[in-house]
C-alpha cells in the first residue's frame, strides 16, 4: 500500500469513529433543513413571479446542501497547524513522502469520511422516509435519470477534490501566520458566502451571477446540486465541470508553490 492510500484509509476510518457526533449532526442538519424549507415555502406561496429555480428544484438543492454540508472546509486542520506551531513539522519533513500529497489525501479523507457518515442517513430520511410520513412535497427526489446521476457523481468528486485543495491551502498559510486564527475565519467566510449554502446561488441578484461563475467556491456545492436538480443541462454542465477542474488544478499548483516557499523560510524552534 502506498503511503498516500494508507493516509487516506486511516483518516477515513478515524472519521467513522465519531458516530454519536454524526447523529447529533444529522439531527441538526435536519432541523436547519426544515427551517430553510419553510422559509422557501413561505416565499413561493407569497409570489407568482418567475424564479430562477422552481420550488421542487429548490427543495432538492436545500436537502443536498444539508446532507453534504461537511464537504465545506470550515476550519483549518488543527493537527497540521499544530505540527507547524510546535515544530513537530520536523518529523513530518523527515518522512520519505511528498508532503503536499500526504496532506492532500489526509484532507480528502477527512471530508469523505465525515460526509459519508452523515450523508447516507440524511438521504435515507429525506428520499425514502419523508414520502412515507406525508412530507412528499418537501422530500428529496431521486435523480431523474442515470445520466444525470453519473454527471452529479462526477462533479461531486470534483467538489471533494476542490475542498481538499482549499483545506490544504488554509493549513499551509500557518507557515506564515503561525496562529492561523485570521485565515481560519476569513477563507471559510468566503466559502460560506459563495458555495451556495446560504441560499441557492441563482437567487442572488443577476449582476452577481457572473462573479459566482468564475470563483472556485461554486464548485463545492452549487455545481453538483444544479446538475442534480436539472438547473444545469447540456453544455452548461460541461462548462461548469471544466471550471471546477480548472480550479482544482490551479489551487493544487498554488498550494505546492506556497508549501515550497514556506518550507524554505521555515525555522524550527527547540531541540
Amino acid at each position: 500500500m502506498s503511503p498516500y492510500s494508507a493516509v487516506l484509509k486511516a483518516n477515513f476510518q478515524v472519521q467513522l469513529q465519531y458516530r454519536a457526533a454524526a447523529w447529533a449532526g444529522i439531527g441538526t442538519q435536519l432541523f436547519f433543513g426544515f427551517i430553510k424549507v419553510m422559509i422557501f415555502t413561505g416565499f413561493f406561496q407569497s409570489s407568482v413571479r418567475h424564479q430562477p429555480m422552481d420550488f421542487s428544484q429548490v427543495i432538492d438543492y436545500l436537502w443536498l446542501g444539508q446532507a453534504l454540508l461537511l464537504i465545506l472546509p470550515f476550519r483549518v486542520d488543527r493537527e497540521i497547524t499544530g505540527l507547524i506551531r510546535t515544530g513537530n513539522l520536523a518529523y513530518e519533513l523527515s518522512r520519505p513522502v511528498d508532503l503536499y500529497l500526504f496532506w492532500y489525501f489526509r484532507a480528502l479523507a477527512v471530508r469523505l469520511g465525515s460526509v459519508f457518515l452523515r450523508a447516507l442517513p440524511m438521504i435515507v430520511f429525506t428520499v425514502f422516509l419523508f414520502p412515507l410520513i406525508g412530507l412528499e412535497n418537501i422530500a428529496l427526489k431521486p435523480p431523474p435519470s442515470l445520466e444525470v446521476f453519473l454527471l452529479f457523481t462526477l462533479s461531486l468528486w470534483g467538489a471533494f477534490f476542490l475542498a481538499a485543495s482549499l483545506s490544504v491551502l488554509m493549513s499551509i498559510t500557518a507557515l506564515w501566520t503561525i496562529s492561523t486564527e485570521g485565515v481560519d475565519q476569513f477563507l471559510p467566510s468566503l466559502i460560506w458566502i459563495f458555495s451556495g449554502i446560504i441560499i441557492p446561488l441563482p437567487f442572488f441578484p443577476e449582476s452577481l451571477q457572473i462573479v459566482f461563475r468564475f470563483l472556485p467556491f461554486r464548485g463545492l456545492l452549487d455545481i453538483p446540486f444544479r446538475i442534480y436538480n436539472g438547473g444545469l443541462a447540456g453544455p452548461a454542465v460541461l462548462e461548469s465541470m471544466a471550471v471546477q477542474f480548472f480550479w482544482i488544478v490551479a489551487l493544487v499548483l498554488l498550494g505546492r508553490i506556497m508549501l515550497k516557499r514556506g518550507l524554505q523560510r521555515l525555522i524550527i524552534q527547540g531541540g
Binding site: I39, F43, F44, S46, S47, R49, Q51, P52, E181, G182, V183, D184, Q185, F186, P188, S189, L190, W192, I193, I198, I199, F203, F204, P205
Partner: peptide, 26 residues
C-alpha cells in the same frame, strides 16, 4: 481578521434574505 470574517458571514446571510425579498417581494 476574525471580526471582519464575522461581518462578512453575517452580512452575507442578510444579503441572502435581501435577495429573496428582491426576488419574491414578500
Amino acid at each position: 481578521l476574525q471580526a471582519l470574517g464575522q461581518i462578512l458571514i453575517i452580512g452575507s446571510e442578510f444579503a441572502g434574505v435581501w435577495s429573496l425579498f428582491h426576488r419574491f417581494g414578500n
